[in-house]
């Protein structure tokens, strides 16, 4: 099957997934409480309450309500996010770029560090380097995020003054009116559109600490996965053959072993990136990051149904796309795997 046809077919298959997700979340939010409660207050009389039920179709069966909601989704009317005090579509457009920039920076750090450390650990198996990375990766996954984040802030912001206090950019850009001219919400892109390199540098500067904090658990995951698959690959026959043919050890590892070892690691990277995109409440809280994590957590807590549904659809979409990319990369890296 051709790659194009495969991608097209997979994209079509996203639809049932999104429908499945929306049905599950929709029923769950309807089961969790009276959805009308958000629109009713103590001063309303019975007829006004009835009006609310009428207006939002709460008096009809759940499946009918679902179709009304689905209709809204298709017409790009995703409802009003009470949490963000703006329409849900606007809220996504506001929060997603912030989260995306952070997640991307974070996964890049994680991939570079994870694969390098993982490969080296496998090559130097059971030597001090291997043991050290093992301990570091263990700490990486079991360390409380807020502890790590605050520690980084304490050292690199408060004591060394190398990094900023948090947020997406410095105050000076608010005061000089630069931030009133944002277009996309991706600060790196916006700063380049404006041609303001100072702003661009400032944005990158603000990204580093939260991205490092966020990358810690992904580094650990990627490192371990890469180490293990590297160990497996290193014992395969073709590696032995390569060595026997006198290929230098560096080339064996770089050209022959690492590429094949990347296959299982790809899955982990794809899934980790998908996870990062759904936002990280604690990291965002510590670094004053206006991202999806804080928005979704607050929406959940206030039962802001419109926000929850919008958020879930978005995350579902991100996940299926991430999985698709993972599968394509699988096929690219491992010719034995046939797409389809």
């Amino acid at each position: 099957m051709g790659l194009k046809r495969y991608i097209f077919r997979r994209l079509l298959l996203i639809i049932p997934v999104l429908i499945g997700v929306s049905i599950i979340i929709f029923s769950l939010t309807r089961m969790a409480g009276d959805p009308a409660a958000a629109y009713i207050n103590e001063k309303m009389n019975a007829s006004q309450i009835a009006d609310v039920y009428q207006k939002y179709h709460f008096n009809e069966p759940v499946y009918v309500q679902y179709f009304y909601w689905l209709n809204g989704i298709l017409n790009l009317d995703w409802g009003w996010s009470k949490t963000a005090t703006m329409p849900v579509t606007d809220a996504i457009a506001y929060y997603l770029p912030a989260t995306f920039e952070l997640a991307l920076t974070s996964i890049i750090i994680a991939i570079i560090a994870g694969i390098a450390l993982g490969t080296t650990s496998a090559v130097k198996k059971n030597r001090p380097f291997d043991h050290t990375t093992r301990v570091i990766s263990l700490i990486g996954v079991s360390i409380p995020v807020f502890w790590l984040g605050l520690l980084l802030l304490l050292v690199f912001y408060a004591q060394l003054g190398l990094f900023p206090k948090g947020g997406r950019y410095s105050d000076i850009f608010i005061l000089t009116g630069v931030t009133k001219n944002l277009v996309t919400g991706f600060m790196t892109v916006d700063s380049l559109i404006m041609g303001n390199l100072n702003f661009f540098a400032d944005v990158i500067w603000h990204l580093i600490l939260p991205a490092v904090t966020l990358s810690f658990s992904s580094i650990a995951l990627i490192l371990r996965m890469q180490r293990n698959s590297m160990l497996e690959v290193l014992h395969l026959d073709y590696i032995k053959t390569a060595r026997a043919k006198g290929v230098p050890e560096r080339a064996v590892i770089r050209k022959h072993a690492r590429r094949n070892a990347l296959i299982p690691t790809t899955t982990v990277v794809g899934l980790a990136f998908g996870g990062l995109l759904s936002g990280a409440v604690l990291t965002e809280s510590i670094f004053q990051w206006p991202g999806l994590g804080r928005w979704s957590a607050k929406s959940i807590l206030r039962m802001d149904t419109a926000s929850i549904l919008g958020f879930c659809l978005l995350i579902a979409f991100i996940y299926v796309i991430a999985n698709l990319v993972v599968d394509i990369m699988y096929a690219y890296l491992d010719p034995r795997v046939k797409l389809g």
Partner: peptide, 8 residues
């Protein structure tokens, strides 16, 4: 997989 953990 696409259902956010927090929401479930």
């Amino acid at each position: 997989l696409s259902l956010p953990a927090l929401i479930m």
